[in-house]
Amino acid sequence: MYAQMIKTDAKRVRGLEEMAPEEQAFQKRVDAGDKIEPKDWMPEAYRKTLIRQIGQHAHSEIVGQLPEGNWITRAPTLARKTILLAKVQDEAGHGLYLYCAAETLGASRDELIEKLHDGSMKYSSIFNYPTLTWADIGAVGWLVDGAAIMNQVPLQRTSFGPYSRAMVRICKEESFHQRQGYEIMMKMANGTPEQREMAQDALNRFWYPSLMMFGPSDKESVHSAQSMAWKIKINSNDELRQKFVDQTAPQAEFLGLKIPDENLTWNEAKAGYDFSEPDWQEFHDVLAGNGPCNKERLGARVKAWDDGAWFRDGLMAHAEKAEARKSASLMAAE
């Protein structure tokens, strides 16, 4: 999903026989489930695709702090406030684990940030939607983190070592994110009529954008096929979306809330739900920069970077001065 629309330079997936010896050895290691580490030989396209995918995953975590950060000062209780603070702090940590993993491939942090700011690297489409009520914080935890978990759990087995280890760390921390969101939904769905209505409204607005997180169907996509051969993508978009609906529909039923889809029905033959596809035109519009909050989100990130320049530069100058003082006093002592 952070690989929404990622291109791999592949025109088709090649077989082992078509590869040069180095790439063959590499592909055999991937097929055997070995981890590729930063200094190991890897195809240039693998390196580039990973930098983009891991980088965009990191950007998504950092930008993802914004819609929830919006409600920290307005959480209804102290407990909810501290929980939301902890979640947002976790997202910062997740972004940092992922930036570091991307940097092991030769990308610099400044470069990755620059590309986010100039629009050449993206973040997950979902974070371009607003959080309009407190119930949205519940819906985000339940549905958005729920969708993220669906994607992240299999990625723990991804071929690139630092990415895989970052995913293991992230998965351990992610499940409280979903549980706190669902708890908010339970509280509101079982509360006053106004609270219940607010919870239903949040579900109505976040359902289809959450389905979009998995990306459009990639049955025909050569990029998806190449990413799967490299084990940087483990399941197809459709597979994950189906699993998400199958898991979430009973959760909505338990809340007594209605998923805004007239076509949502259990299909005995496939042992899963039939459901309506989201509006893919909306998805492409949002990725192109025309979602409700794109300008606000990127604006907030650019401002944070620009406003923080004195802090970064000041600390660096202080560190350099201290280092110079130390070596001067060492030389004086000789």
């Binding site: 940092l96 570091c100 092991t104 970052a166 760390r169 600390l315 660096m316 202080h318 560190a319």
Partner: peptide, 8 residues
């Protein structure tokens, strides 16, 4: 456990 950037 990983890496990070810091001035000192």
């Amino acid at each position: 456990v990983g890496s990070l950037h810091a001035p000192d």
